[in-house]
Design a protein around this nucleic acid. Structure first.
Length: 682
RNA sequence: GGCAAGGUAGCUCAGUCGGUUAGAGCACCGGCUUCAUAAGCCGGGUGUCGCGGGUUCGAGUCCCGCCCUUGCUACCA
């Protein structure tokens, strides 16, 4: 078999945040694949870099009162440190803000220009006059033009789901300065992707480069229609590279970010006397990208389009993975499940999460759930209880001795495990790590069973059986070494410790087929510590970010002393069905005005708004409990489909909901913040 | 709304071309063992395969309809 030349990339982490456990799914997945390829004897290079450009970095630098370069330098140091802590071994870790990247952007841009794919168009965008910068949608907030919800993002309403442009927002504000933005027009450069439509349709649908789900997604979402032009420029000020033939304009961060893959490869080539063209312009080289599903279209449409136009290798494969959930939910800062890599490393061994992710990762883009109880159980049971246990229970009987000079008869166990080499290799190759781990654990079970049946600890008491004990341990340690080898892409440290124990390094996949004989066995040292619940809890505790708003309200030690009186005073009504309940249409309403009804003892006259022009007049018996001026503007819950009732003082068109016995003890219901008038209560 | 992927044991999931009595790991229960980091070995499964139809000698699997979950839905990063 000739060695393949393989270039591997993981997505470039953005220089605006630290590495967390979600990021690590990808870097661990990729690192395992790279270590596997290297073990197989392929020439494999793993490059990555920090993604450094864009508005977010520029804003952050301004807020921190320092240069963008200083911001990205610090973050790069932190990223490199975190990756090293998780045993992620890049061959080169670069930066998109590098001279190599700038030169490649120039080269690729020139080719795209040459191909006639660039078009100039005016774009209207909101501009922050105070900061002197154009505003991306997410830097604008205002009132939703449809439902009037306040403080909504610039592109869509989180309350009613309406989509709009930031310019349509009512009362828009810049989140940078608080200033009211103005609409300004600027010339932008676009890449006419549609001109590459037939190429992209063919490339994405060939079945060779993408997972089926991804190909279907692209077909359904993009390729069935005209591809829109891609806006690749941003007017100054912008932190990035200035476009040489369009002064005052900069490449949008997503233009230069993937080019960073090539730039990082170039840095590596310079350090190792290699030619960049061998890696990016030679069809014999396989380029593999590992990314998350959130950035699919950048890597499967724009990027192949750029590469094709500029004459670079197209990706051999884009491997796309899902998101990380913790305990079945999105990572949460308040629950402590948004765990930074550096926090994890303070409490736990990187081997644990590497193995756990491997045991859950498959070739598809399913989301991956980190269940912390399962994490503890799996790591302790599989790694400590099964795998390391084999070495632990065999090594001490032969410590400072040598393994047998010829491999003893073992009932075919070693052969059987060696025969799995191709199956397991294939599973690694296809990124089907969970099935690979399953296969490997079956081998561990067989090895433990062997030791159990042979009972070396019994034979050991009989000095005449010393040779037999040595044979049994030679077998057990060789079976263990096979496991360590199969696991070495996932657990590089274990492979190294195994090499130290048996005094022979683990270097090649095919070593799994030849047993060690005659080599010295070092004294056994623990290879992995068990995980405890306390360690995991300490990690999540440290990750909890307390929301200052809720923290202030939260009682230090809540003492609930709720008595039975309220329920006793008004027993439960007869059971009703959900059908009965939905007959009552409860709505959120805002009190627009409230006035005292002088002639009445208990009534206030309220005008409620259900949003828009929908208003109701309601008489509420709350005069003893609320003053009119306390009520104006607040949200309440009203019965909106109650039959109107003519009262002495006017028509009452509903009720507002309140609890309490009456008189001064009346307590209005109010929705949590975020509710808007007109919403139904379910 | 549209598209995609899912819904199988308490939990996490496998289940090939439609084919015997639907499986594995974890958890749990019982027994054995006591070399090993409270590790190991053996045994233990009463599942409306989301719901309802259909095709078929036979459906977890194929077809139709419905329910539910998650994700995505370019000029955000």
């Amino acid at each position: 078999m000739t060695a393949r030349r393989i270039l591997v990339t993981a997505a470039l982490p953005y220089a605006n945040g630290h590495i967390h456990l979600g990021h690590l799914v990808e870097y661990i997945q990729t690192d395992i694949w790279v270590r596997f390829q290297k073990l197989r004897g392929n020439k494999c290079v793993f490059v990555c870099a920090d993604d450094t450009h864009g508005t977010a970095i520029m804003i952050r630098a301004r807020q921190e009162g320092r240069s963008e370069e200083a911001v990205i330098a610090d973050m790069r140091d932190a990223h490199v440190r975190d990756f090293a802590g998780f045993d992620i071994a890049f061959d080169n870790y670069g930066s998109t803000n590098s001279p190599e990247n700038r030169a490649l952007c120039h080269e690729i841009w020139a080719k795209i220009r040459e191909a006639g794919l660039v078009k100039e168009e005016a774009v209207e965008q909101l501009f922050d006059p105070k900061e002197g910068t154009f505003l991306a949608d997410r830097f604008v907030r205002g009132t939703c033009p449809r439902c009037k919800a306040e403080n909504q993002p610039g592109d869509n309403c989180s309350k009613c789901g309406a989509t709009y442009t930031p310019a349509e927002l009512i009362n828009p504000k810049s989140t940078l300065s608080g200033a009211t933005p103005e609409v300004r027009s600027a010339q932008h450069l676009f890449i006419e992707l549609e001109k590459l439509h037939s190429f992209l349709a063919e490339w994405t649908q060939s079945g060779e480069h993408l997972q089926d789900e991804v190909a279907n997604y692209l077909k359904g979402h993009f390729l069935g229609d005209t591809l829109r032009n891609w806006d690749v420029s941003r007017p100054a000020p912008y932190f990035g590279f200035e476009i040489p033939d369009a002064p005052g304009n900069y490449w949008y961060v997503w233009f230069d970010a993937p080019i960073g893959y090539i730039a990082s490869t170039h840095e590596w080539c310079k350090k190792h006397g290699e030619q960049l063209d061998d890696w990016w312009k030679n069809p014999d080289t396989e380029v593999h990208h590992f990314i998350g599903k959130d950035i699919t279209y950048f890597h499967t449409l724009f990027w192949p389009g750029m590469l094709k136009t500029a004459g670079f290798n197209l990706p051999h494969k884009v491997h796309i993975h899902g998101f990380l959930t913790v305990g079945g939910e999105k990572m949460s800062k308040s629950l402590g499940t948004f765990v930074m890599g550096s926090t994890y490393l303070k409490h736990l061994d990187p081997a644990f999460i590497r193995y756990y992710y491997a045991s859950k990762l498959g070739p598809r883009l399913d989301d991956l759930d980190l269940n912390l109880d399962e994490f503890i159980a799996k790591v302790n049971a599989d790694l400590v209880g099964k795998v390391v246990n084999i070495a632990s229970r065999a090594a001490k009987f032969v410590a400072e001795q040598t393994l047998c000079e010829s491999y003893p008869s073992d009932g075919g166990l070693f052969e059987a495990a060696a025969a799995k080499a191709d199956v397991i290799a294939d599973l690694y190759e296809r990124c089907d790590y969970n099935n690979a781990m399953r296969e490997i654990m079956l081998l561990a079970d067989a090895a433990n069973k062997y030791v159990d049946e042979k009972q070396p600890w019994v034979l050991r008491k009989d000095p005449s059986k010393a040779a037999e004990v040595r044979e049994i341990c030679s077998v057990a340690l060789n079976l263990f070494r096979q496991l360590a080898l199969y696991l070495s892409p996932v657990l590089p440290k274990l492979a190294q410790q195994t090499a130290e124990l048996l005094n022979v390094p683990i270097q090649r996949w095919d070593d799994v087929r030849s047993p060690l004989v005659g080599t010295r066995v070092s004294p056994f040292k623990h290879m992995l510590q068990r995980v405890s619940v306390e360690q995991v809890q300490a990690m999540t505790e440290e990750s909890k970010v307390v929301d200052p708003a809720t923290a202030a309200d939260a009682p230090a030690a809540p003492q609930w002393n709720d008595g039975p009186e309220a329920l006793a005073a008004e027993p439960l009504a007869a059971e009703c069905t959900i059908d009965d309940f939905v007959k009552v249409d409860l709505r959120v309403a805002r009190i627009l005005s409230a006035e005292d009804v002088l002639e009445a003892n208990k009534l206030l006259k309220l005008t409620l708004s259900l949003g828009g022009d929908s208003k109701r007049q309601v008489f509420a018996g709350i005069k003893a409990a609320y003053k009119p001026e306390q009520l104006v503007g607040r949200l309440v819950i009203c019965v909106a489909n109650l039959k109107p009732r003519q009262m002495k003082f006017g028509l009452s068109e509903g009720m507002i909901c309140a609890s309490g016995p009456g008189g001064k003890d009346v307590f209005l219901l109010a929705p949590d913040s975020g509710a808007v008038p007109g919403q139904r209560v379910h």
